[in-house]
């Protein structure tokens, strides 16, 4: 995967590096938004983004031109974040992740909901959506966001989050359903648990 840029007196290194830098800097906004989503603190997010750029430029030769730079930078950012969290693991609460899993995978209640997405689209306020997202366990929120908003492929998300593809899909699935539950009336038991477990660092990786 490591490919060196050609070196020569006419300066392809500079050209390649400049293009890399230019493109990397256009991705500052989505990277900062991702960092905010992960850290939930402005100063920490800013730090995380700067760290990401330092690493990205230090290892820029490892980037394969023509592949997805955004996905590559997101992977660095997520790895950096995971390493930081590992360093401060004492701060995280040991949560019963099985409760979250069970709550999220329950089939719905007895009543049939017809055209749920239409009802939701009509009735969901932006503030409700934001609150529902905030209440999701972090692992689910990130998987769902990377898939449905950023539209990355499962394999790219697996690389970013450092988990197998099956885990990515199950996090997306549960995240979407928890989001639906939260928006469709009601903070039911599932989202209650989700709220409680929002500091889980790893849920459902296997």
């Amino acid at each position: 995967m490591i490919r060196r840029l050609p070196r020569g007196p006419s300066g392809p290194v500079t050209t390649g590096a400049d293009a890399f830098a230019d493109e990397a800097l256009t991705l500052l906004e989505p990277l900062y938004a991702t960092a905010l989503r992960l850290t939930r603190h402005r100063a920490d997010a800013e730090d995380l983004v700067q760290d990401t750029y330092v690493k990205a430029f230090r290892f820029s030769e490892r980037f394969v031109p023509g592949t997805n730079l955004k996905a590559w930078l997101y992977t660095i950012l997520h790895n950096t974040w995971r390493n930081r969290r590992r360093d401060t693991a004492r701060d995280t609460v040991d949560v019963d992740s099985e409760v979250v899993e069970a709550a999220a995978s329950q089939p719905g209640g007895p009543e049939e909901l017809d055209t749920p997405e239409r009802i939701l689209l009509r009735e969901t306020l932006d503030a409700d959506l934001q609150a529902a997202l905030d209440a999701l366990p972090a692992a689910y929120r990130e998987a769902v966001w990377l898939r449905d908003v950023e539209e990355f492929a499962y394999a790219e998300i697996a690389e970013m989050l450092g988990v197998p593809m099956g885990t990515v899909m199950s996090r997306i699935s549960r995240g979407r359903r928890l989001l639906f539950d939260a928006l469709s009336g009601g903070m039911d038991s599932a989202t209650g648990v989700a709220h409680h477990a929002s500091r889980v660092s790893e849920v459902g990786s296997a």
Binding site: E29, Y32, A33, L36, R42, G108, L113, P116, E117, L120, L121, T124, D126, L129, Q130, L133, V144, W145, D148, V149, S173, G175, R176, R177, L178, L179, F180, D181, L183, S184
Partner: peptide
């Protein structure tokens, strides 16, 4: 249906969320 509902709302609405 739930999963599709969650997916649709997020896809249609995420662009409206305020960005910092």
């Amino acid at each position: 249906a739930k999963e599709e509902g969650g997916k649709t709302v997020l896809r249609e609405r995420a662009a409206h969320l305020p960005t910092e």
